[in-house]
Design a protein around this nucleic acid. Structure first.
Lengths: 355, 355
DNA sequence: CCGGGCCTTGCATGCGTATGCAAGGCTAGC
DNA sequence: GCTAGCCTTGCATACGCATGCAAGGCCCGG
């Protein structure tokens, strides 16, 4: 064993095993042509020297880094850490490492991503971050697959994985109307985020279908503080909403706190509350938040599969994958008065979904 | 602009700028000897070709990857995502990238870390993950600095950054005793985690100093589900505790849910509850959890500084940094009956701390 | 017994950048 | 005007590994 010295190289192993450096390389390359006997000798020498192939050097010759960059704007919303965790495991299972990129608060992710291109990442996953069309074009030229996660973009033709934002918003409208609510509120995420826009559009369209007005709205910017302020705004109105849909669970919890502890409202008696994502805190019984789910593992699996596919076949057309979710009813909303049906002994709320 | 071709190399830039490849390299190396005029020509050519130095190739020659691997066992506990976020930004500010490592559930991190050594990472930060002494030795030989975050280890001489686990436990004991509680419970994290052990030891020693017994204890393994089970266990006892200290906030919230919704207990009237970390959910008013803080930014700053220092000076002795926290009192515990003092017009609870 | 073909191996080279070394140009001082 | 010395530059090479190519060995069929 060498002490503090530089790590053993394939040449060191070759010398010790009495073979050529190429043989060592082949011994560590699955599927390479090498005799069983030679491989054994190499492996023995490698073990004795504590040798591991240098991934940096390997990347240089193969021109594939087996690194995927993943950008996320913030991790306060529980949804993202869980995505990150699953993504890291999922990518690793396919032999990729995950490089984590957190843009500075309030800054655009572009400079960060550009920096990461120096790392020759094999792919880029953008969660809760948009991609400027300039950078998208740059990636396309560099042949770096880009995948938007929980976002889409209109400015460029990019692949994406999202939940059923539009349908989710509709279902929530259906549920709230069926629960007998009449004055609706919406707390938006970041204004120009496609996710928030689609959820809102589904919601307002759903309401309109039942003959209800556009809801009162306020902007929560996906942050706890801004959502709290939005809640104060909405709840102080003369025509206070009796049902509020928040663009995600994280903001819904902020609204719940303000409603209960600043306005003394009971949920759902005085105010129904719905979120989106169905994250862990939504399940905590102090909130028991009704939420439209974005199933974590399926979404991550789809993302991993898609990005790998894009790497293997760069010429493939872009794809927009939509992972189905479902409305998870909990105690933060009243049960609907109608629209129930029995299936396999379970009581399912079908609602008035026309689709 | 080249379409879909391989990215421009320093040689391409050199040719276009009419200089040698070395000149291009020097133009991108801060502090290298190069004429202003030449640098200008190189920069112009580089811009025209969309050139960025290849970090992989650079790492190969410089023998420094500027990548730091960070392992975390789980991200459910809000503490870790926030650490991750701050760590990524902090490292980036010093020119390092963060490679995220999530061991498979229930598996040891060793194989993962070994795999990452192939990436020639410049350093390794282990959060909520232990390091086998075998691997620690291997890292030492390879000259890879290792930093334990929110953990220590007795089996090897390794640097670490932690909060005031022992003192925190003591303070909590002081607070609960001062609040008039008499039957104490403790929910441990993973049994062999130094963090949980130290907090428990501080707690029991603190209690003992006031003449109280070792508390009833149960194991929550840092998970929500296990902590819920632990709570059921503790709360079903004939001598039900009237105060429970949980080794972290995440588990404390699980206990709060069970206490309220399964046992109909009021907090803090029937049961006082204390956590550790002072994460975001502890501040949510539905919990208003008293907690001993682990200040995020100072801990991360210390970790980043320490790991960089270790990289620059590999021969430096290991260090155990302890970042001071404070007891944050909220509504989940009764206010203590004594021990208050005025300072600068603020009412400070000094407690009976002897240290 | 001979030849074709497959398996295995080593040689040589390339991946893109950094850097020691020596040469050349230029400035300043005498 | 000459030389010492600094600044700048290019050349050559190294970093550690993968891989095309050709040579050698072996087996098997004819």
């Amino acid at each position: 064993m060498n002490e503090g010295r530089r790590p053993a190289t394939s040449t060191d192993v070759a010398r010790r095993a009495g073979v050529s450096q190429s043989a060592v390389s082949r011994a560590f390359t699955p599927g390479a042509s090498i005799a069983e006997e030679t491989r054994r000798k190499v492996e023995e020498a490698a073990r004795a020297l504590g040798y591991r192939p240098n991934a940096i050097a390997r990347s240089l010759t193969t021109r594939r880094s087996r690194i995927i960059g993943m950008a996320a704007a913030y991790l306060q919303n529980q949804f993202y850490p869980e995505v990150l965790e699953a993504m890291s495991r999922g990518l690793r299972a396919r032999g990729y490492q995950l490089l984590l990129l957190m843009p500075e608060h309030g800054r655009h992710a572009d400079p960060l991503l550009e920096e990461v291109m120096a790392w020759q990442v094999d792919g880029l996953i953008l969660a809760s971050t948009t991609l400027s069309s300039a950078l998208a074009e740059q990636c396309r030229q560099a042949g770096i697959p880009v995948l938007l996660f929980n976002r889409t973009t209109s400015t460029a033709h990019v692949s994406s994985v999202t939940g059923e934002n539009h349908r989710g918003g509709q279902r929530i409208a259906d549920l709230l109307v069926a629960g007998g609510h009449r004055r609706f509120g919406f707390v938006a995420g970041i204004e120009n985020s496609s996710t928030s826009q689609e959820r809102e559009r589904g919601f307002t369209e759903g309401l309109a279908r039942h003959g209800f007005d556009l809801p009162a709205r306020a902007v929560g910017s996906y942050s706890f503080e801004a959502a709290s302020a939005a809640a104060r705004n909405l709840l102080a109105r003369a025509d206070r909403p009796d049902a509020i849909f928040c663009a995600n669970d994280h903001m819904a919890i902020a609204v719940a706190e303000v409603a209960r502890h600043e306005f003394g409202l009971r949920i759902p008696e005085d105010l129904a509350l719905v979120g989106f994502d169905d994250t862990a805190p939504a399940k905590w019984r102090s909130y028991a938040l009704t939420s439209f789910s974005q199933p974590l593992q399926p979404m991550v699996d789809a993302a991993v599969a898609l990005v790998c596919e894009m790497i293997e076949n760069p010429a493939a057309p872009t794809r927009q994958a939509v992972v189905p979710g479902e409305l998870v009813m909990r105690a933060s909303t009243r049960l609907p008065e109608s629209g129930w049906l029995d299936r396999d002994g379970q009581r399912i709320w079908r609602g008035h979904e026309s689709g």
